[in-house]
């Protein structure tokens, strides 16, 4: 079950809506943050804290493709490979991430440290290549700079 801080956070979301079902999507994000992905256990926790049936929670979660339905690494790297980033060598960075950290494109490294999501434009064409690590934004990437950045994500 969630710890008290998380429960309080969910209570806060519940308080915003007249119907507790409305709190489901934001609560799923919280569960995803806590568990890394929407495991059965994570969904059960959401169901209990919102007093909703488990099947309803799973049905709703499975409808949306932007929730994580499979386990992900501790840190999720989202790297852009659209035109500007591609021209400035994003493809090589994908290879670098695989050889240096063992994280394949749209996969997870064997040590569970990183997941790599190849994503569409994040609006940083002027300072490409760019990526997000979890929710942190980085641009002007190079292999060296990536190494420096990822040092902060153990």
């Amino acid at each position: 079950m969630f710890n008290d801080t998380v429960l309080k956070e969910i209570e806060g979301i519940k308080a915003k809506y007249p119907d507790r079902r409305s709190a489901l999507l934001p609560s799923l994000y919280i569960a995803q943050r806590e568990f890394g992905w929407l495991s059965r256990e994570a969904m059960t926790c959401v169901a209990r804290s919102l007093n909703l049936p488990e099947a309803v929670v799973r049905g709703t979660a499975s409808f949306y493709s932007m929730y994580k339905h499979k386990p992900a690494g501790r840190h999720v790297i989202q790297l852009c490979t659209n035109i500007s980033c591609m021209i400035l060598g994003a493809g090589k960075l994908v290879d670098f991430l695989e050889t240096r950290y063992g994280v394949p494109a749209n996969g997870t490294s064997g040590d569970g440290r990183f997941s790599l999501v190849i994503m569409e434009c994040i609006g940083a064409c002027g300072t490409a290549p760019a990526m997000l690590v979890n929710t942190d934004f980085y641009d002007n990437l190079s292999e060296k700079r990536i190494e420096e950045i990822l040092e902060n994500y153990k």
Partner: peptide, 18 residues
């Protein structure tokens, strides 16, 4: 009882218990 739900969407929709 709310024991079952439509899981997935579109072509992949199916009815399943939790």
């Amino acid at each position: 009882a709310s024991a079952i739900s439509v899981i997935g969407r579109g072509n992949r929709s199916r009815v399943e218990p939790f």
